[in-house]
Design a protein around this nucleic acid. Structure first.
Lengths: 148, 148
DNA sequence: CGGATATCAGTGTAACTGAAATAA
DNA sequence: CTTATTTCAGTTGCACTGATATCC
């Protein structure tokens, strides 16, 4: 695809621009992570665990924008790779407590550096000032949406 | 999800912001189009046909960022709904010529007004000036990528 | 009884891969 | 033979729905 060949109606439609940008971002990121056998959502979960400490699967889902029902398999995989521990919450309930392991922290560090390289590639057309501007605008659009 | 609860590592990661914004944009758009039995990519194809005139399926794919192999079923559906005509190119080759019909133009007009309402909803947190800024930044990031 | 959670089964869409067939 | 196109078959990741089970 050559996006400069796209119809004006699409090129000026925010929802289309967002999905197309997301598409190329996903492609760049996935390709980068492929070499490590890692997935985008695993990074999100590990980042949430490191920043906020142990959490339930439902919390992780809310924080990362991942459905709780998808979180099950996600935590299964991370747990199988010893990047997180999953244990029933001693406080009771059905709740699990998911904790990042030292292996998980190491993995997170690796993924972080890899991903930051990809961001540079993705945002190459923009100046540093424009990049922070874009980040700010995207955060505000996202924060403006309430759902469920 | 409450995006303001997301880890800093995610909230400042452009690729994550793009995919999350794309997700909510897709949800808003799809929900709006559901009532009409329409799909997002149908709008893209119709828009391309109206702006550039009859085109091959491969051209449509390049213009709209849709894989040629997915374009087959897409044109099948549009054709079944009499929104486009598909005929072998008299110039020869395997190429088809896809043409928008008057039904298709009417459909495109309906979809356009519906979609512009959704954009307002999506970009509600931004001023008019910020919206054009966002559009500009997204266009430039997209244009900066060359692939295949 | 709610209310929150975890889990499972299944669906739909989009994006993509790879190969075959067609025709200049 | 090369190239572009259309088409088909299949895979993957992701988002989502709905139901069930568990626990306070």
């Amino acid at each position: 695809m050559d996006s400069d060949l796209a119809p004006t109606r699409l090129r000026q439609l925010p929802s289309w621009l967002l999905t197309q940008n997301a598409r190329i971002a996903t492609r760049l990121v996935s390709h980068e992570l492929d070499a490590l056998g890692a997935h985008r959502r695993q990074f999100a979960v590990l980042a949430a665990l490191e920043e906020f400490g142990p959490a339930s699967q439902a919390d992780l889902g809310r924080r990362c924008g991942i459905d709780r029902s998808d979180m099950v398999a996600l935590v299964n995989d991370l747990s199988a790779a010893d990047q997180v521990d999953r244990a029933p919450d001693p406080a009771g309930g059905r709740r699990n407590v998911v904790t990042i392991t030292s292996t998980g922290r190491k993995r997170l560090r690796t993924l972080t550096t890899r991903l930051s390289r990809v961001q540079d590639e993705l945002l190459a057309p923009l100046s540093a000032r424009e990049r922070t501007q874009l980040i700010d605008l995207l955060q505000r659009v996202l924060d403006g949406q309430s759902w469920r």
